[in-house]
Write a protein that binds this DNA or RNA. Structure first.
Lengths: 233, 233
DNA sequence: CGGATGTTTGATGCCGGTCAACGAACGTGG
DNA sequence: CCACGTTCGTTGACCGGCATCAAACATCCG
């Protein structure tokens, strides 16, 4: 349970379901919410778990993934401040694994409570719908990247996306923080972690990137227009 | 414009937006609809076109795809009887290319007219939402297949999916019709058409398939459990 | 029949997967 | 504080799967 006064300081207040609610209405939503904190690698939920609630990320990053029968996994998305994890469900079960990539705080909503708010506020319902649409389009883009691009181009596409996401949230994109491991990145891009590492090297050699550290880089040339690695695959 | 009496014979009546409407309510929806016919390879709409309407497929098959800057394309989905193309939009523009794979007939709805019906009927709104959810999950599955599976496993996964889709619609799944070209299949699976052809051969050699013709096969062994080609990639 | 289109099959090469070794960063315990 | 183990990222060597280039074949249709 959260006091609505807290929301005024919440960095995710300006996004999706909270955005359309003014100070008077916010308590309706907030009374169904609780702040949670998750440590690195902790699972927020697993595929097949009863879909207890939705987690709106207020800080940090989580991954959504599908495990494969042979132990591999496909990370389908990285979610950041303002995004909501767990609103996708089949029956009343979660359909993805959700794992904290960094230390993460969430504002977690009871499903039924949120449904009530959605039913009462057109703006909130529209926000939910828009999130779903955005996710479909994003999945399609990602699918196209994995299906059609070579390794280096996939990485470039990812860096460009990440940079934009940081920009939307007012986070610094230069240097660009890469909080996820090489393995996470590989599972996201449909590659092995060694290949991800080599692709970083190629971007550095082509002077598209400068490495500050293994988890921070500076993009020195516009990736989208440089067509870097676009000849691959 | 369609007479509601026609709907009684429509094979797609039992799906999504038409399903929740009884004979009395159907005309509300139908007055915004028009039957269209599309020939093989014809574009229903292109990415970036003003999103004029939604096309509910009553017979045939269409592909949804994203063109890449270098001329390649990623087919993100094949839609069949009962599915709706064109409800995904960014602003008021279509976000995919939609092309007829086979001769196709659609029942096409004016967007504003449909919106009015959606606003008035909870069942129709729920149907739209469910379609969106299903698409997200399907895209995630497809992404995982492309990202994690080898060529032959991807093909097997596709055949299994197609078989199920036919089953849902009461279409014969044995023999299994493959109306799309090898190129379409390649664009869907993130492969080249030669590789698709070779993967078919491998499935035949492993006695998972029997080829009736190049566009009709018989699945002789359960693909899902055979783990065919699952060792690849 | 001849041309266009689509599928199969072969030969070859390269991208990325696999296996392995090494180094950097970090935490723990002596 | 340093020795040690663990985890993660990098780099190298090698190889296999898929792309590429090419040719033969099948099917359809004017």
């Amino acid at each position: 349970m959260v006091g609505a006064w807290r929301c005024m300081a919440c960095p995710a207040k300006a996004w999706n379901i909270c955005r359309p609610l003014d100070e008077d209405r916010l308590p309706e939503l907030v009374k169904h919410a609780a702040v949670h904190h998750w440590s690195r690698r902790q699972m927020l939920f697993r595929i097949g778990d009863p879909a207890a609630g939705l987690h709106k990320i207020t800080a940090g990053m989580v991954s959504l993934s599908k495990p494969m029968p042979d132990g591999r996994r496909q990370i389908v998305d990285f979610l950041m401040a303002g995004d909501i994890a767990g609103f996708m469900q089949s029956g009343d079960r979660y359909v993805f694994d959700c794992q904290a990539v960094t230390e993460t705080t969430t504002c977690s909503f009871d499903r039924n409570g949120l449904s009530a708010v959605v039913a009462r506020h057109q703006g909130v319902a529209a926000a939910m719908e828009k999130m779903m649409e955005d996710r479909v389009m994003r999945f399609a883009d990602h699918m196209a990247a994995i299906g059609q691009m070579g390794a280096t181009a996939r990485l470039a596409y990812f860096l460009e996306w990440l940079s934009k996401e940081y920009g939307k949230r007012g986070l610094p994109a230069e240097p660009l923080a890469l909080p996820m491991s090489r393995t996470d990145l590989a599972d996201f891009l449909g590659l092995r972690f060694e290949t991800v590492s080599r692709s970083f090297k190629e971007l550095k050699d082509k002077h598209v990137l400068e490495a500050v550290s293994s988890e921070t880089v500076v993009v020195t040339r516009s990736i989208g227009t440089s067509r870097s690695g676009a000849h691959l695959n």
